[in-house]
Write a protein that binds this DNA or RNA. Structure first.
Lengths: 348, 348
DNA sequence: CTCTTATGAGAAAAGGTTTTCTCAACTGGG
DNA sequence: CCCAGTTGAGAAAACCTTTTCTCATAAGAG
C-alpha cells in the first residue's frame, strides 16, 4: 500500500484541492469538507477514509477560500515606524509569537515617518482583509503618520500614542523608574542623581517624577534631573557636571540614567576620573539593551520594559477584539522589571 | 453634488462589493469589473460612470477573491531567525520597501532556531498561498531550521546559507575587507593588524584572507589574524596582545576589526594605554552599526554591508522568479561600502 | 404492513472577483 | 432590403471551501 503519491515531482504542481480529495475518496466535496472539519453526520468509517485520503494526498485547505467565506483572514497587520528596530523587534517577535499558534500570520509594515508609505501599507492591508492591526512605534508619545481611527477593524496600539477611545498598551515607565531608584535606596545610597534624556520626550518627565517621588518618600533630597540627549556623549557631559565641583562630599553616590547609552557614557566617564563603579557610585540604566548592558564595565543593571511581553499582550488583546469581545479602551500599563547586574552595587 | 456617501458610520459596515457598485451604476458585475480594470469594450461614458460610482462608494476590490482566481496572492513570506534583529531589520525593511510599491505585502515569520516554529510558519504561509519566500538569517554560513527545498514556490536566500541550486544573495565580505585594508594602505599605514571574530564563522576566514591578500599585494608583512569573539571585551584583550610587548616599533599602526563592537573595545583599550586614535593607530570596524560607530571616540570608520539594498535586491529577485522569469541559481555577492569617519585617520 | 423518525450523504448556494462566451442592436456595403 | 461585421453589455463559469437544505434509505414503533 506504499505506492507513494509523493514520488511525482511535488513542486510546480498545483496544490491538492478538496475536490480531488473527495474524488479520490469517492464522496462529494460536501462530505469531504465535513469529514475533515469534524462536522456533519457520517459513519466513522467514511470519515476516517476521507481523512486518510487527505493525509495521503497532502491536502491543505486553501486559506484564501476559507477566508472569503468566513470573513476572517487569520491575518493581522503590524505597523511600525521604528526602522532601527531596537524597540520594535522584540515587540514584533512578541506579537508574532502570540499569534502564530492560533494560525494568525502577521504582515510587517514599515512606514518610517512617511505619510504616503503609511497610507499605502494601510490600504494594502485593508485590501487583503486583515482582521486587525497592531500599531507600534519607537516612542510612546508620538502618533504614527497614519490615521487608524475609522477603520472598521480593531486596532491595538503598543508602545505608541493611541487614538482617543482606542486600546493602548505601554510600559509602566514610572514603575520602572521606581524599581531603579528603590533599588538604590535599598542598597543604602543617599544622593541619587538622575541623568535623563531630552525634555521633548514624555517618558523623560514620567520617569523623573517617579525618581523624585521615591526620593521624597524616603526623606532624601531631590534636586532637578539633568536633561540632555539619549547618547553616550551626554552621559559623559553629565558626569562632568555632577562630579566637576570640588567638594567630594557633594557628589552623588548613585546615578539613575535615562537609557543604557547614557549609562554607558556615565560609567566610562567615571572610570576616566578614577571614580569606582559600583563602590563609589552606583549606576542603573534603562531599556536593558543587552548588548550594551553586558559590554559595560562593570555590567550594567538596567530596567527592562518587557517589550516581548508587551507584544504578546498586544497580539492577544487584538485577537480578543477580533473575536468580538469588547475591551475597555484606554491605556494599559505593563510592569517593567529590574535586571540586576553589577553596576548598582550590592547590600552594604 | 456633495451628498457625501461617507456621512453614515463607515466602520462596522461591511466593505463595498463590486456587486453593489454595479447595481448603483446600473450595469452588471461583469461590466463593472471590466470598467475598473480597463478591460473589455464599452462606451467611454459608461466606463467613466462606473468608475465614478466606485470612487464615490469607496470601493476597493477584495484581494482574497482576486487571489483565489488569479492564483497570485501578492503576498510573500519573510523567514528569519535573527531575533535580536541588528542584521535582519534593515534587511526586512529593504524587502518590504521593494515590494510595497508593487502591492505585495510581507509576512514576518520569526522562527528563532526552533524547528517546530519554522514548520509552523512555513505551513501557515503555504496555506495562505504566499507567492514566494525570502529566507534570511543572522549569519551567512548557517541554514535556517526549516527545509525550503521542495516548496513549489520560489525561494530567495538573503544573508543566509542557500540550498544548493537556489538563488542566494549575500554581502561581499572579501570585498568589504579589501575596502578597509586598502584604505589603510592608501593612508600610508604599514603594519596593519586584524582582530577578527571567532573561527567558527565562515566570514571570519573570508575577511582574514582578503586582509592578507591586500597586504601581500602591497608588499606588506602579513602575520596571523587574531581570532576571538564578537565582543568589546575581546577588543580589549586583543590590544593587550598587540601592544603589550615592549618595543614600540613592533606595534601596529592600524587595526582592522571584525565588527564594530570589537573596534569599540580596541579604541577604548588604546585610549586607556595613552595610544592616540587615529594619530598613532588607525582603526576600522565592520557592520557600520551606526549607534555604536557614532558613539565611539573618535567616531568609527566602518564597512557597511548595505543590508537594506541586499533586502531590496532579494525582494526584486523573488518577484522576478514569481513572475516566471528564471534566475541563475547560485550565490550573488553584493558590494559593501566604506563609511569613513575619523578613526582611520586622513592622508599624511 | 404502514407510518414515523433517525441516519448518511449529496446538491446547491454563498463568498467576491475575473474572464470567456454569447447575444442583441446597430452600422455600412452591395 | 439583406447580410456581414462591429460594438456594447450581460450571463455564466471558474477559483475553493463551508454550510444549509434536501432526499433517499434503513430502522423502529404501532
Amino acid at each position: 500500500m506504499s505506492s507513494d503519491a509523493e514520488s511525482a515531482p511535488v513542486f510546480a504542481r498545483p496544490p491538492v484541492t478538496l475536490r480531488e480529495v473527495a474524488a479520490a475518496a469517492g464522496v462529494s466535496v460536501a462530505t469531504a469538507s465535513k469529514a475533515l472539519n469534524g462536522q456533519g453526520r457520517m459513519t466513522a468509517e467514511t470519515r476516517e477514509r476521507i481523512r486518510e485520503t487527505a493525509r495521503l494526498l497532502g491536502f491543505r485547505p486553501n486559506s484564501l477560500a476559507q477566508s472569503l467565506l468566513r470573513k476572517r483572514s487569520f491575518t493581522v497587520g503590524l505597523l511600525t515606524n521604528d526602522t532601527y528596530g531596537r524597540f520594535s523587534l522584540p515587540l514584533m517577535a512578541g506579537v508574532s509569537d502570540a499569534l502564530v499558534d492560533k494560525g494568525v500570520s502577521v504582515f510587517l509594515c514599515n512606514v518610517e515617518d512617511d505619510q504616503r508609505l503609511g497610507q499605502l501599507h494601510v490600504e494594502a492591508m485593508l485590501d487583503k482583509r486583515v482582521d486587525g492591526i497592531v500599531a507600534t512605534g519607537k516612542r510612546i508619545d508620538r502618533h504614527l503618520p497614519v490615521d487608524l481611527s475609522n477603520l472598521r477593524i480593531p486596532v491595538v496600539y503598543a508602545f505608541t500614542q493611541p487614538d482617543p477611545g482606542a486600546v493602548g498598551l505601554v510600559s509602566d515607565d514610572a514603575g520602572g523608574a521606581r524599581l531603579a531608584v528603590e533599588q538604590f535606596v535599598r542598597l543604602g545610597r543617599r544622593r541619587i542623581a538622575h541623568v535623563a534624556g531630552p525634555a521633548s520626550f514624555a517618558v523623560v518627565h514620567t520617569r523623573a517624577d517617579a525618581w523624585r517621588d521615591v526620593l521624597k518618600e524616603n526623606g532624601l533630597a531631590a534636586g532637578e534631573p539633568l536633561l540632555g540627549a539619549w547618547s553616550e556623549a551626554w552621559g559623559h557631559d553629565a558626569v562632568a557636571q555632577l562630579f566637576g565641583k570640588a567638594g567630594r562630599e557633594g557628589w552623588p553616590d548613585a546615578v539613575f540614567c535615562g537609557n543604557d547609552q547614557i549609562a554607558r557614557g556615565v560609567i566610562d566617564a567615571l572610570r576616566e576620573r578614577g571614580i569606582r563603579v559600583p563602590d563609589d557610585v552606583g549606576v542603573i540604566g534603562f531599556d536593558n539593551w543587552e548588548i550594551v548592558a553586558e559590554a559595560t564595565r562593570p555590567p550594567l543593571t538596567s530596567v527592562d520594559m518587557n517589550l516581548a511581553s508587551l507584544g504578546r499582550e498586544a497580539g492577544l488583546a487584538l485577537l480578543s477584539l477580533v473575536d468580538g469581545h469588547p475591551a475597555a479602551p484606554g491605556i494599559r500599563k505593563l510592569p517593567c522589571r529590574l535586571v540586576v547586574r553589577q553596576s548598582c552595587g550590592s547590600p552594604p
